[in-house]
Amino acid sequence: MAAGGDHGSPDSYRSPLASRYASPEMCFVFSDRYKFRTWRQLWLWLAEAEQTLGLPITDEQIQEMKSNLENIDFKMAAEEEKRLRHDVMAHVHTFGHCCPKAAGIIHLGATSCYVGDNTDLIILRNALDLLLPKLARVISRLADFAKERASLPTLGFTHFQPAQLTTVGKRCCLWIQDLCMDLQNLKRVRDDLRFRGVKGTTGTQASFLQLFEGDDHKVEQLDKMVTEKAGFKRAFIITGQTYTRKVDIEVLSVLASLGASVHKICTDIRLLANLKEMEEPFEKQQIGSSAMPYKRNPMRSERCCSLARHLMTLVMDPLQTASVQWFERTLDDSANRRICLAEAFLTADTILNTLQNISEGLVVYPKVIERRIRQELPFMATENIIMAMVKAGGSRQDCHEKIRVLSQQAASVVKQEGGDNDLIERIQVDAYFSPIHSQLDHLLDPSSFTGRASQQVQRFLEEEVYPLLKPYESVMKVKAELCL
């Protein structure tokens, strides 16, 4: 049975990233139509530049190519590739079939990587351009969430054990800070992308030097003109047959890092959902379990974690691919890159769409948070109580021993009897502590235990987050809708 299948058929496997999760716009960027249309555009740009620099290419040939950029006979191309065992030459023939007058000058002087690699770089750039505003929107939604809850005390956790208090907004800023680093890295790697350009079979530009009869300047002009037509500021000066596969490492490393950030955020949300302090959106008709109707599973956060793990592992592909590119190139890269580049971007696209949807509907339960604080705060307040007693004339050592005994009794009630923490009640009825009984409410005010959390939130948002989001103001209103 021949390899390949009808990918629109229910009898043929289709990647869930495309069929179930990723956005239509990201799927289109990695589609065959987008790819092969870009090949034709690159052939047109090459012909236009070659004509401008004096090669015998007519206006009629150029116009014929322009008129057929979208006229792609995919069936013919597939048949040609089956016959020739070469995808680029299959599309040269297919393009030439609908451009008979231009057929002889299509791909003039070029090698397969002229269309293959340059198209990949265009796709990487455009895919990054799709991700950047999506990530900015996630940051914006979380920034709104953090600002609104900047002063809401909550129990902090280290080692997932109760620690000092923080605020809900401050905790959210930990998430935002990681995503801001990801946004900066995505922008950097996007701006650092260079075009492969017009380089020939081993990167020496020998074929173009021959076409222009040894004119170095025209060869350099050709490279520059096509690079500018493709919208790049610069091209690699040095290439082998391909652009260095280190570029793929750079791009997928940034995406993998984004995956790590999203995994951490969504894990926190899942843990908070278990504590009943916070939940992701839950639709009115949504079913959490087929057997347990009360369940409210954090399905979206779980999906993000599941896909983020996949995204983090994909960076190993370009690392290994770059390491086995012998001399000017081997074909070890080809099949692998067809999979890992598309999957990385479709996965990143999915987790950003999902995280935006989550961040637009996060639900906080202040009463649950308050109750958990009441359970733990008495123990945390013991040092403040000791200091207040010393100020009232008591002995630190005597007070410490009193607190120690009462704390152990209260802990026994919590752990052995399943009761509430009654340390404060014990202190309130103990005559030894009568000098500070009137101060206990103040000493137990949760806001006095959150330090500068709310001020940190305000400063972080104003100095770091809002300036970073400013270039994306025009796209901030787009909502994230999930079908599944």
Rank of each mutant, 00 (worst) to 15 (best):
P10A: 15
V405G: 14
K82R: 12
F145Q: 07
G203F: 04
E280V: 00
H310D: 03
L252M: 14
V324C: 13
I105T: 11
A335S: 15
Q164S: 11
M312P: 03
G5T: 15
S334W: 02
H437N: 08
R270D: 00
G203Q: 01
K295A: 02
E277R: 02
R85L: 11
P318H: 00
Q61Y: 10
L84V: 05
D441V: 11
L55S: 05
K218G: 10
G451F: 02
R296T: 12
L468D: 05
G169V: 01
K284L: 13
K101E: 11
K170E: 00
Y13I: 12
V92H: 00
N384S: 14
D32S: 15
A77R: 02
V414C: 05
V92R: 01
Q416A: 11
A2D: 10
Q456S: 08
Q177W: 08
R149P: 01
G451T: 02
C304A: 15
S434P: 06
C180W: 04
D120P: 03
R141F: 13
T313N: 08
S257A: 08
I57H: 09
R85I: 10
V364C: 10
D216M: 09
S19W: 10
E70K: 13
N384R: 07
E280G: 04
T227C: 14
A256K: 00
P298Q: 05
H217R: 13
T202R: 01
E25W: 05
V315K: 04
L46I: 07
Q61P: 04
Y294P: 01
L440Y: 03
L341N: 13
F145P: 00
A136T: 15
R404L: 10
D349I: 05
F195Y: 14
T313W: 11
C340Q: 02
A388D: 02
V198A: 13
D120C: 07
D223V: 02
L131F: 13
D59E: 09
G116P: 00
I62S: 04
Q205H: 07
T382E: 03
S395Q: 15
A453W: 03
Q286S: 02
E148T: 10
K264I: 03
F95S: 05
V413F: 11
L53N: 07
P10S: 15
L461R: 03
R85C: 06
T239G: 01
N68Y: 08
K82C: 11
I139T: 11
V189R: 10
D144K: 15
M65F: 07
T450W: 04
C113A: 11
I237P: 06
V364N: 04
Q409G: 10
G393M: 05
V219C: 07
L135M: 15
F160V: 03
E213N: 12
Y114M: 05
S9G: 05
M380N: 07
V168G: 02
D248K: 04
Q51H: 08
P24G: 11
L271V: 08
T158D: 00
Q164V: 08
R125S: 10
R270I: 03
E250D: 13
M181I: 13
G203K: 02
I123K: 06
N384E: 05
Q61A: 11
Q409K: 13
A344I: 05
Q286H: 02
G104I: 08
L44R: 06
T202K: 03
V363A: 04
R329L: 03
E462R: 10
D59L: 11
H159M: 03
V254M: 08
T382C: 10
M181V: 09
D6Q: 03
Q409T: 09
P471L: 15
I237A: 07
Q241D: 00
R188I: 06
Y34M: 08
L69N: 07
T227W: 06
G203W: 00
A235C: 15
K264P: 05
D248M: 00
A392Q: 11
A410S: 10
T227I: 05
A110S: 10
V363T: 05
T227L: 05
V315R: 05
D420V: 04
N185A: 14
K295F: 01
M389D: 10
C180H: 09
P162V: 06
R396H: 03
G116E: 01
G240D: 02
Q375E: 06
D398K: 13
P366L: 04
A291K: 00
R459Q: 12
R309V: 12
R125T: 07
K367Y: 07
E417I: 07
L252D: 08
M316K: 02
A291S: 05
L128R: 02
I249K: 05
Q458K: 15
D182R: 01
P318D: 02
F28H: 11
G394W: 08
G8D: 15
E50N: 05
R33P: 10
K147Q: 14
S253W: 09
G109L: 01
T52D: 13
C305A: 09
D333E: 04
I62E: 02
Q428P: 02
E25D: 14
R452I: 12
D120V: 08
A411T: 12
T111W: 00
L55E: 12
M312C: 10
F379W: 07
S438C: 12
S261M: 02
S407D: 00
Y294I: 01
K415V: 08
R329S: 02
C173A: 13
K134E: 12
E228W: 14
S306G: 08
I176V: 13
L482P: 07
R459M: 13
S12G: 15
A3F: 11
D332C: 01
K224A: 14
W326E: 04
S151H: 10
L179A: 12
R149W: 13
A3G: 10
E213P: 14
A78M: 11
T321R: 02
D6S: 11
D87A: 02
G393D: 10
S454D: 14
M389H: 07
E376A: 05
Y13F: 10
L252F: 09
Q428I: 10
A78F: 09
D349Y: 06
D11N: 14
Y21M: 01
L55N: 06
I373V: 12
L271W: 02
H7C: 11
Q409P: 03
L84N: 10
E60P: 10
A453P: 05
L132A: 14
T450I: 13
H93L: 08
A163P: 00
Q161K: 01
G418T: 03
R303F: 00
L222T: 05
